[in-house]
Each structure stands twice: as C-alpha cells, then as structure tokens.
Amino acid sequence: MLLNQFLLLGAVLFCIGVYGVLARRNGVLVLMSVEIILNSVNINLVAFGALNDDVGGAVFALFVIAVAAAEVGIGLAIVLLMYRNRRSIDLSEADMLKG
C-alpha cells in the first residue's frame, strides 16, 4: 500500500467536510460536517503513525476522538440553546454580529 492513498482519502473527506460546514444551514448538519473533518484528520494521524511505526499517531487519534465527543456535546448544547431562544437552528439567521 502507499501512504498517499490514505492521505488523499483524508484530503477528499476534509474538503467534503469543509463544503458541508460552509454550505449547510442547519446547525446539527454543520456539526456532522465537522465530524467528517475530524475523521479525515484521524485517518492522517493513524496513517503517519503506521508509516513511522510510532504509537503516537494512534494515541493522538484517540485524543481527537475524545475531543470530538466533547465538541459534539458542547456544540449540540449550543444548538439546543439557540433553538430554545429563537425556535430555529438556521445558522444563516444567526447574524447578530453583522456590522
């Protein structure tokens, strides 16, 4: 196997995730896209770990999984709060920061 097949897979997933983050309007769907991004990063980490025969890649992939769990927890809590306050989770309506 080549290293690049995993890395390119990761890159493609990353781009799809970015597309999702930018194009989706539903807060929950944006969070899902973020998960895709994190997974692509994990594939990279594990692939490089396997390349160097180093356990660090796997360890940090695990850490990323843990952080992702925390991120989803907080993210969904924020989305929930937003829903409760505005009865909508449409991110394009959340534009109170506009200048």
Partner: peptide, 26 residues
C-alpha cells in the same frame, strides 16, 4: 461559495500530498 472553497482546499492539499509523498510506501 462553499464548493469553490472546498475545491481550492482540495487542490492545494492534494497537490502538496502528491508532490511530497507520491512514492512513500506503507
């Protein structure tokens, strides 16, 4: 807009990967 950004990112990362690791074996 999202598609343009994603494709741009894909081109940059893909190009960099192919340039750097095209013959690295696992």
């Amino acid at each position: 807009m999202a598609a343009v950004v994603a494709v741009l990112l894909g081109l940059v990362t893909g190009g960099a990967l192919i340039e750097s690791f095209s013959d690295t074996r696992l």
